[in-house]
Amino acid sequence: MNAYQEFSIIGSRPVRPDGLDKVTGRARYGADLNMQGQIYGHIVRSPHAHAIIESIDTSQALAMEGVLAVMTGADLPEPGDSVLGGGEGAIALKDLSPMVMSQGKVLFHAQAVAAVAATSPELAAQAAALVAVSYQVLPVVTNMEDALSADAPILHEDRFPDGFPEEPTNLAAHISLEVGEPDAAFERADVVIEQTYSVPMCHQGYIEPHACVARVDAAGQVDLWCSTQGHFVVAQFTAALTGIDVGKVKVTASEIGGGFGGKTTVYLEPLAVVLAQKSGRPVKMIMDRGDVFRVTGPRRVRKHALNWAPRKMVN
């Protein structure tokens, strides 16, 4: 039973309070805030989808005039075994950290391997091109069937899902749910339908690319502005990834230009914070549209086999 049975204003259609700012262009989204003295971050991305990083030489980039900071995965603390968040958004730090910046191995094309910060976006892009990364390129596997074949390249040598062999495989998880007596149900079924369905990987397709600007003051207090579906989660994830206390990370959510689930994690924010720490300047980062598609949140590709034995469905 609901506490309120009749309504006076619920169910009406007033103009939304933030509407005026949005139709006049005043609303500030992720890329719309500038901090005084800010510089610009640019990410160096892997040209390979599967590779071991042998070495990263950032000296040439750092020597460039106007470049104030360079970082690699070595600047992020070793991820421990902790799990962040809860429910649908739960993620192990050891999955999140390399997704934000690789720490030794590249597992997908365009994965971040280093980042630079410079006084203009153009300079930052030029400096990023000077970061020399040496890769040992490994074979690539992009579909599920191949990934489970005996000779498939193994992505994670150190992972063994429950109930599966001692040798590492590309099997990430295995689940099973059962109610009633399915085997018996198949035997007494009137009709059995067997089909396979598949749905490809798709992107959320939000129109606003990821963007943020971060400042770290002399006392180590972080001030972070970003486009996100949850700025408390950004604070928690950023703190865990950078080794900063959550209490020192203040996050302000900008207006958000679509998310659909894709902006419930961090991609740029921890990198902007580290670059701001290193440079002593606020750092702004905006993701290129191509990189939004290449490295952020696609939904699952799924093959789905349906074995169905309906009986007495029509009474």
């Binding site: 259609r13 129109i207 230009g257």
Partner: peptide, 26 residues
Amino acid sequence: AEGGVLHPVQQKLLEHAGLQCGICTP
């Protein structure tokens, strides 16, 4: 918006809820 008066397109987008996140709206 001229002199602070919304253009009819702006006004109607507000009235019809023709925006959600608003990034495409301008």
